[in-house]
Simulated assay, not measured.
Amino acid sequence: MKQLFKTAAFYAVLGLLLGVFYREFTKFNAFTGTTAIGFLHVHTLVLGMFLFLLLIVVEKNFQITQAKAFKPFMYIYNSGLLLTIFMMIVRGIPQVLSLTLNRGADAAISGVAGIGHILLAVGLFLLFKALYQRIIE
């Protein structure tokens, strides 16, 4: 349960810092449009902090951390979330700075972000598998 709390706290701090980064970076660059970094705050808080806070309640009732699939979930899901967050930053900074990316760079950013999303999906599958394992036991 302590690991879940620490993970939730990490994403809470990261989400708040990313919200400040978005506000200050766009203000400093006089940017008023829509950018990927504008969604970092909410994504990090919901997919990170809130999910792991919810898992604390699930752990209390089902001891989900005892399931075989839970440890792989933690590694894969967190890797996917951090990669997705990083790629949102990589996508958003050029948007704010009005930089035009060549097709190769644009495709590379989209491809790596896609890998992050795939890791998130696999992680969620493992979470459901772990929960199911604990429910049937």
Rank of each mutant, 00 (worst) to 15 (best):
K2C: 07
K2G: 12
F5W: 11
K6W: 07
K6L: 13
A8G: 11
A9K: 04
A12F: 14
A12M: 10
V13K: 04
V13H: 02
L14Q: 02
L14D: 01
G15M: 06
G15T: 08
L16Y: 10
L16V: 14
L16T: 15
L17N: 07
G19R: 14
E24C: 04
E24V: 09
T26W: 00
T26M: 13
K27E: 08
K27N: 11
F28C: 06
N29K: 13
A30G: 05
A30S: 11
T35Q: 06
A36L: 05
I37H: 12
I37D: 00
G38S: 12
F39N: 12
L40R: 01
V42W: 03
V42D: 03
T44L: 03
T44I: 06
T44Y: 08
L45K: 06
V46Q: 05
G48H: 00
G48Y: 00
M49I: 01
M49P: 10
M49R: 00
F50A: 14
F50K: 05
F50I: 15
F50R: 01
L53N: 10
I56G: 05
I56K: 04
V57L: 05
E59P: 12
F62K: 05
F62E: 11
F62V: 10
Q63V: 09
Q63F: 08
I64Y: 00
Q66A: 15
A67K: 10
K71L: 12
P72V: 02
F73H: 08
F73N: 07
F73G: 06
M74G: 10
I76K: 02
I76V: 02
Y77P: 03
N78M: 07
N78A: 00
S79M: 04
S79I: 07
S79N: 03
G80I: 14
G80K: 07
L82M: 06
L82T: 13
L83R: 13
V90W: 04
V90E: 03
G92E: 07
Q95Y: 02
V96D: 01
V96Y: 01
L99E: 10
L99P: 10
T100L: 01
T100F: 03
L101S: 01
G104Q: 04
D106S: 14
D106V: 03
A107L: 09
A108W: 01
I109F: 12
I109N: 11
I109M: 14
G111W: 06
V112S: 02
A113L: 15
G114C: 08
G116R: 02
I118L: 15
I118G: 08
L119N: 00
A121S: 12
G123D: 01
G123V: 05
L124H: 04
L127A: 00
F128N: 03
F128G: 03
A130R: 11
L131D: 02
Y132I: 08
Q133P: 09
Q133V: 13
I135L: 08
I135S: 00
I135K: 05
I136R: 14
